[in-house]
Amino acid sequence: MPEEPAVAASKEAVVRVRGLHYGFGSRKIFDGVDLEAARGRVTAVMGPSGTGKTTLLRLITGQVAPAAGSVEVFGREVTTLDTAGVYSLRRRMGMLFQNGALLTDLSVFENVAFPVRAHARLPERVLRQLVLTKLHAVGLRGAAELMPSELSGGMARRVALARAIVMDPDLLIYDEPFVGLDPVSMGVIVRLIRDLNDALGITSIVVSHDVRELASIAHHSYLLSGGKVVAHGTPAELDASPLPIVRQFMSGESDGPVPFHYPAGDYHADLLGDGKERPRS
């Protein structure tokens, strides 16, 4: 595994990010990120909380523009596209949101049918077959008439997954798909991500910090920290990495290169001070 941030060598990259810089005000989120998602593969993006994993997805999907650098999706430079261009690109993408983001005033069936109704004029019978097929793929055909408020977190995530694949996308993006799920639901989602990827030939990008789950499905993983890709490779390569930050992240140690404490002033001075002035580091 290379020690320096680099990219996986692939001529068939569906997503190619080069020299990405992005920040909020004076705070730098990305400081020269390079990464690729190869066609038909599951690419994992890992990193501690607050490293900008979700922001990276927002940049890939054209929701925000980078300060500098290139974001190429399906061979098209996202940063130079107008709204119509971004929308035409998104028609080839599906995205699973952290909380599912189901439309709360529509039933499960209508949620899955939503993108189809918006982009295609299918006879109702064909639409019904399509939606039920996708719901069956995620095991929720029987929940078609339920409302989102009647679903558990895991079920909502699976409905959102059915919606994400209903247009048969070429690229499927998962934003923290395992957050808040019980072990059974998590196992179902893990299985679905890999099965859908293999069965449909979809390119998948999974953003998460659940190391074990990602290791079981990812072909290639990137570890982000401090605005850069600090390591990348297969899950086995990351597991064997001698880099302290990789070791800390992979083994879930509470202290290390990623400190346990948020930067603060002197502890004693803080405790014994009069409370009016809080020393800052």
Partner: peptide, 21 residues
């Protein structure tokens, strides 16, 4: 609330303009 729960963003990702829908 649709904004806070990512429903509008989800529409944008599905290439559906929330201004229209």
């Amino acid at each position: 609330l649709m904004r806070a729960t990512d429903q509008l963003t989800a529409m944008e990702i599905m290439a559906v303009d929330p201004l229209r829908k």
